[in-house]
Each structure stands twice: as structure tokens, then as C-alpha cells.
Computed example of a mutant assay.
Amino acid sequence: MTPADLSLTVLHAVRRAVGDGALRMEAPLPERVKVERPRPGGRGDYATSAALQLAGVAGLPARRVAEVLRDRLAGAPGIEAVEITGPGFLNFTLRGDSHAQLIARVRERGDRYGHGSALAGQILQYHHRREVRAAVVTQAVARLQTVQGALVRVGCDAVDPAWAALGVRVDAEGAPPTPLPEAVRPLPVTYDVYALGRDAARWALLRPAAHDRALEARDVLPQTEANGLFTVRYAHARARALLRNAAQLGVTAAYEEDVDAGRLLTALGDHPAVLEAAARHRASDRVARHLEATADAFLGFQHTVLPLGDEKPSAAHRSRLALAEAAGTVLAGGLALLGISAPDYL
């Protein structure tokens, strides 16, 4: 179960509570319910403040709203336990089999895992100035919104031919007949970013938030763990190497038993919500930061995947291999959305 799945489950519980009269709303039901990692003092895998948000319109204390929702969420598919903490936070512990469902979904969707329909039906038009970072960031935002279902068109007063080296494409050139908004207005880059090469240049422009300065060569070229781009691509290459090595050992990927890799499983489960938030907030840097967190979690886990020495392959190894494969898929898919390659060998 992903955060997006859990959000829908909570929303359905709210609707059932209203439908059977347990909650009376003086305002329209929310279209979305935010689910996130528990805050200090929280428990389980995820939490939501939905009960606190609904308390006012329901005319009930937040804890009472939380109790109503807990009764309708307990035993839902993928949920092991629901607890109430603080003034009315709902905390969820997921079932182990939900991890199997998560891995199956990643493997089924491939590099399209996390793509959704949150912006379906929206038609968005942007216009940016003739500046390389504006061009790259706007294109990345457009791609993120497109995979969430939006129709996006990007224009610029005048296209710089050099942008082609960074894979930038503009739908329309010239001043629009009516003013169009900018998707985002990042700080311009102040050095020759083209000298970095396409992948490093795009990471240098997209990894910082738009209001921060672009990264420089010393941040994106060294092959060390201090370089987020290298870490993400190295983690992907390691995942692919594990699959090659496993094939030589006759080990196949199959998530047959739960794996003790909470950070990595959480990162994979959070991926759809991160992509949706990045699209809504026009913030490609959120994707880059999430890929770094996923890579760090994977690199802390990857040494346990294959049998060591005389150890015989087991269900545990097959399950860890399936998790490693899913991690590589998410890393490659995320890099592709940023227009960055994910080589199998580094």
C-alpha cells in the first residue's frame, strides 16, 4: 500500500462515516487526504491529521472524529493497526503483505510507477525567458505534470540553439498573443553549465530549489558520496549488477517474505506521492531529493541481497533481490523524469 492508496482508503472511510450518519459535515467533503510519515510522538508507518481538519466542520472533538474513522479503517486491506495519538492524529501500521503488493506494483508498472492522474483534465501553458536554467526547469516541470495527466505547452520568446545539448524542447517560439505565466522563475545560472555535459548540467540546474543557486562543477562531477547525482546513479548501477550476479547464481527475484528494510520500502512507497507533490508545486528538486534518499536507503541494504560464501539461496534472498530490482526501477524512472540517464555500468 502506497501513501496514495492509504489516502484514498482514509477518504473512503470519511465518506462511509458521513453516509451512515456517524459524521455530519457542514461543508463539502475534502477531495484529498494528506498522508505522511509520523511526526515525533507518532507511531507506525504513516499518519494523517484528517480528523483534526474535519473536526470543525463535523462539530465534534478531533479525537472523536479520529475514533469514528479508526473504527472504519481497522481491518482494511493492507492495514495492520490504526492508533490515535496526540489531539487526534491517526497512525497506521501496514501489513507485511502490503510490501509484497508494493513490490509487485513497481515491477508491473516499471519506469511508469508513480505516474498518475492527479492533474487529469488540466490544460497548462507556460512561457519562460531566454535563459538556460529557466528552460531546463520549465521542461522538467512540464514533464512531471504531464505524467500526472495534464496537457502542458511550453513557449519561449526566442530559443537558444545551445539548449539542444541539454535535451531542451520548446513547443512554441515567439511572444504569445496574451501573457502566459511562468511555471517557475529560478535564479539564473552564472557559469558555463554546458561544460558539465548533459546529465551533470541538468542535475546542477534541477537539484536546488528554484530560489537557490545552481550547483557547480565541484558539486556534480566528483565520483564520491558527496555528489548526489553520482550516488543515485551508482545505486541504480548496483541494483542492475545485483540482478546480473543473481542470474549467474541462479537466483530469481520474487518477493516471498517480508524484508527488514523499512527505510527503503518507505522510500519506494512514497514515490508516487513525491511525484504528485512535485507536479503540483512545480518543484523538480523534490524528485531529486527523494532519489537521493532512496539511493541512500538502498546502498545501506544492498550488501544483504545475495548469498555470501557457502550460504544457499533462500526465499529471503529472492525477496531482497525483488526489492533491489524495484529500487533500481524507481531510481531509473525518477532520473528519466529529470531528463537524466541511468547507466547500468559506472
Rank of each mutant, 00 (worst) to 15 (best):
residue 246 A to K: 06
residue 321 L to G: 08
residue 293 A to R: 15
residue 327 A to W: 03
residue 223 Q to S: 14
residue 47 A to C: 09
residue 115 H to G: 05
residue 102 L to G: 07
residue 185 R to A: 14
residue 206 L to K: 11
residue 173 E to D: 03
residue 279 A to C: 03
residue 125 Q to V: 13
residue 109 R to Q: 15
residue 317 H to M: 11
residue 75 G to W: 06
residue 242 L to F: 11
residue 91 N to H: 04
residue 318 R to L: 06
residue 8 L to M: 11
residue 232 V to N: 01
residue 336 A to M: 02
residue 46 Y to R: 10
residue 199 D to N: 14
residue 161 P to Y: 04
residue 37 R to C: 02
residue 199 D to G: 09
residue 295 A to K: 10
residue 141 V to Q: 04
residue 252 T to S: 12
residue 288 A to W: 01
residue 115 H to M: 09
residue 40 P to F: 10
residue 252 T to H: 12
residue 112 R to P: 01
residue 319 S to Y: 07
residue 333 G to L: 05
residue 36 E to D: 13
residue 69 L to C: 13
residue 119 L to Y: 03
residue 192 D to M: 00
residue 198 R to K: 13
residue 235 A to L: 09
residue 89 F to W: 15
residue 85 T to Q: 09
residue 304 T to P: 00
residue 68 V to M: 04
residue 57 V to R: 14
residue 339 G to T: 01
residue 85 T to S: 11
residue 74 A to S: 14
residue 17 A to E: 04
residue 255 Y to H: 13
residue 228 G to Q: 13
residue 226 A to H: 12
residue 25 M to D: 01
residue 1 M to D: 11
residue 102 L to N: 09
residue 246 A to Y: 07
residue 240 R to Q: 14
residue 295 A to C: 09
residue 17 A to D: 02
residue 172 A to L: 12
residue 193 V to Q: 00
residue 108 E to F: 11
residue 301 F to Y: 14
residue 132 V to D: 02
residue 37 R to K: 11
residue 67 E to F: 05
residue 134 A to H: 11
residue 291 L to A: 01
residue 58 A to S: 14
residue 126 Y to F: 15
residue 134 A to E: 08
residue 28 P to R: 06
residue 221 L to C: 02
residue 302 Q to T: 10
residue 10 V to H: 03
residue 44 G to N: 01
residue 128 H to E: 09
residue 132 V to S: 04
residue 40 P to I: 11
residue 318 R to T: 07
residue 284 S to Y: 08
residue 22 A to N: 08
residue 129 R to N: 09
residue 223 Q to M: 14
residue 65 V to P: 09
residue 270 D to G: 10
residue 314 S to W: 08
residue 303 H to K: 03
residue 314 S to F: 03
residue 93 T to S: 14
residue 107 R to V: 11
residue 38 P to E: 02
residue 317 H to E: 07
residue 244 R to Q: 08
residue 334 G to C: 10
residue 90 L to I: 02
residue 221 L to P: 01
residue 178 T to G: 06
residue 120 A to N: 04
residue 213 R to W: 10
residue 231 T to H: 03
residue 340 I to G: 09
residue 206 L to F: 06
residue 99 H to Q: 12
residue 73 L to I: 04
residue 119 L to R: 07
residue 197 G to S: 04
residue 132 V to K: 00
residue 224 T to W: 04
residue 5 D to R: 15
residue 321 L to F: 06
residue 295 A to V: 11
residue 86 G to W: 01
residue 328 G to Y: 03
residue 311 E to L: 08
residue 124 L to N: 03
residue 165 A to K: 12
residue 137 V to P: 00
residue 130 R to Y: 00
residue 37 R to T: 12
residue 98 S to H: 02
residue 308 L to E: 14
residue 198 R to Y: 01
residue 282 R to V: 10
residue 330 V to S: 08
residue 39 R to P: 00
residue 168 V to G: 06
residue 307 P to R: 05
